[in-house]
Amino acid sequence: MQEHHNNETHQISYSTYLLVWVSLLALTSITVTVAGVHLGDYTLFVALMIAAIKSALVINIFMHIKFEDPIFKVFLGISGFTLLVIFSLTFFDYIYR
């Protein structure tokens, strides 16, 4: 039962890695900058969006999920969905308090 469907490993170029790394640094500096700007209710939303983009980059490129079998994407999707639900439910407390 352990046969592998795609034995070819997808090669990612160094330039892509470098680009992702620079993007992550850029997004981190945006997070820090935004923390100093008063955005009211949107502060947390912006911070979470940036964090989501950064996670997507790391998961897809550094962790190679983009090039893996669909089953891994499903597993990761379940975890991501659960996290989203947990965040949403928590906000029912904080928004209406």
Partner: peptide, 17 residues
């Protein structure tokens, strides 16, 4: 996963929650 705050009804969470 969706029921955790029932431990916190008297902890000061919002009524909606």
């Amino acid at each position: 996963y969706l029921v955790w705050a029932h431990h916190m009804f008297t902890s000061g969470i919002s009524e909606t929650a």
